[in-house]
Simulated scan of single mutants.
Amino acid sequence: MEAPSPQGRHPGWPAKLGPLQVKAGLVAVRGPRLFDASAWSRIRLRDRDHLERWEPTAPGTWEDRNGTLAWPGQWSSLRALARRGMTLPFVITVDDQLAGQVTVGNVIRGSLCSAWVGYWVASHVIGGGVAPAAVALVVDHCFMLAGLHRIEATVRPENTASLRVLEKLGFRQEGLFKRYLDVAGDWRDHFCYAITTEDVPDGLVSRLLANGRATIPQ
């Protein structure tokens, strides 16, 4: 596994993490690039039924928000926020092909040292261990090189696949946020999950390895 090297003004960014071998292939995460546009758009448009029901309501059509021309603006915004230390954005690759995103947002330093993590993966790799591996790589990075103490994740109770990812990794459920976020045109309840450095002194990747859910390629 390649050791990430913090560069620039904010700890932990940029970085390239992984790979881990899982059922679906070699999983790695890296910063988004401008030329990811075509692959990103192709997956997002194809997987609308799989993704739209779980994502925050936004103006415009799905095609407008996820077409190839939408990516440069998103990429530029993510890069600007990363340079200001407010987010750590990553794309997920499987066998070097883009297969999703993991974003660490609302990074707060000082006495809180916390952030939230959100993720999505392409439909063709669901069930292949991709999401747990990618989230584990990113959370370990946040705790080790990025200097964070707590990572939260909010998930709708109906999103059983995403709940399984967090539970496999050892996130604890801390409560229910009523009418928390506007998703698919209505205010939806979300479970709040969280994990802190004290919960995983050896890291989440080590937990996946110990449980046989991933291996480190030789």
Rank of each mutant, 00 (worst) to 15 (best):
Thr68Phe: 00
Trp120Tyr: 12
Val104Cys: 13
Val29Gly: 00
Phe90Ser: 05
Phe191Ile: 02
Leu209Thr: 06
Val139His: 05
Ser123Glu: 15
Arg150Trp: 06
Ile108Met: 14
Gln97Leu: 15
Gly60Val: 04
Leu166Trp: 10
Leu81Trp: 06
Thr103Leu: 15
Ile92Pro: 06
Ala82Phe: 02
Leu45Met: 12
Gly118Met: 08
Ala39His: 07
Trp187Ser: 07
Gly118Gln: 11
Val155Gly: 01
Ser206Pro: 01
Glu55Val: 12
Ala82Cys: 08
His141Gln: 04
Gly85Phe: 05
Val139Arg: 04
Ala134Gly: 07
Gly100His: 13
Asn159Trp: 06
Val94Gln: 02
Ala24Gln: 08
Val200Asn: 01
Asn106Met: 14
Gly212Phe: 09
Leu181Ile: 13
Glu174Val: 05
Val27Ala: 07
Trp116Lys: 01
Val102Pro: 09
Val138His: 05
Trp13Asp: 08
Gly128Ala: 12
Gly185Trp: 07
Arg109Asn: 08
Met1Pro: 14
Leu88Gly: 01
Gly110Trp: 10
Leu145Phe: 12
Arg48Ser: 06
Leu51Val: 04
Thr160Trp: 03
Val91Trp: 02
Gly105Ile: 08
Ala184Asp: 15
Phe35Pro: 00
Asp64Phe: 09
Arg109Gly: 14
Pro14Cys: 03
Ser123Pro: 00
Val117Gln: 02
Val91Gln: 09
Ala70Ile: 13
Pro132Ala: 12
Arg179Ile: 00
Arg9His: 10
Ile216Leu: 14
Arg84Trp: 01
Ala194Lys: 01
Tyr119Gln: 01
Asp95Arg: 02
Arg179His: 14
Thr215Ser: 15
Asp202Pro: 00
Ala184Gly: 10
Asp140Glu: 11
Ala15His: 07
Ile195Lys: 00
Thr215Trp: 02
Leu145Arg: 13
Pro217Val: 06
Ala80Phe: 04
Arg30Gln: 09
Glu52Thr: 03
Ala214Ser: 11
Val135Tyr: 07
Trp54Cys: 01
His149Gln: 14
Arg156Cys: 12
Arg83Phe: 01
Gly8Cys: 10
Asn66Trp: 08
Leu17Ser: 11
Asp95Lys: 01
Gln7Trp: 05
Pro6Val: 08
Ile43His: 12
Phe143Arg: 04
Ala3Gln: 14
His50Cys: 01
